[in-house]
């Protein structure tokens, strides 16, 4: 399934340089409509305004962290289907399991290149489309 590059993406990280870096990589892949949030709480409010295709979020943030955001999204009727890609560091693999249970679609270890990011996004949308196929059977 070809990915829709016109969909709106939300990048969440409390360090603005990081958001810029990820945004840049997303643009290189082909996304053009990218918004930012500095913590989970901001991210959630933005998502509620609607129209977002997926979310890339860092894990450690003040106010509401990655897993907090994830849980709020999965609990919300409107937003629960939104794919979430978690950005993690090498040594946090044990936290990934917690995240998977809470419902992330995939994880990506930083630092990553544009290629790796594209692969992970492909997997997310592949999985989703597989899931949709399953549900529609």
């Amino acid at each position: 399934m070809t990915i829709n590059y016109t969909q709106k993406v939300l990048v969440v990280d409390d360090f603005s340089t990081m958001r810029r870096i990820v945004k840049n990589l997303l643009r290189q892949i082909g996304f053009t409509d990218i918004e930012e949030a500095a913590d989970g709480a901001q991210a959630f409010s933005k998502l509620k305004t609607g129209g977002f295709g997926f979310v890339i979020s860092d894990w450690n943030m003040p106010n509401l962290d990655g897993i907090g955001l994830l849980k709020m999204v999965r609990d919300d009727d409107e937003l629960k289907e939104i794919p979430i890609l978690m950005v993690t560091v090498e040594s946090e693999k044990d936290k990934v399991i917690t995240a998977i249970q809470a419902g992330i679609n995939n994880y990506i270890v930083k630092p990553f290149t544009g290629e790796i990011l594209k692969e992970k996004i492909d997997i997310i949308f592949d999985n989703t489309s597989t899931l949709m196929k399953e549900l529609n059977k």
């Binding site: 901001q42 106010n63 249970q101």
Partner: peptide
């Protein structure tokens, strides 16, 4: 290990929320 991690996650979440007030992001 699973349940331990879940509890750890809950604890961290609470810690984060408590400290979240102090570490409020002022970038906005």
């Amino acid at each position: 290990t699973q349940s331990m991690e879940l509890n750890e996650a809950k604890e961290n979440q609470q810690k984060n929320e408590a400290h979240g007030q102090k570490l409020k992001d002022i970038s906005s």
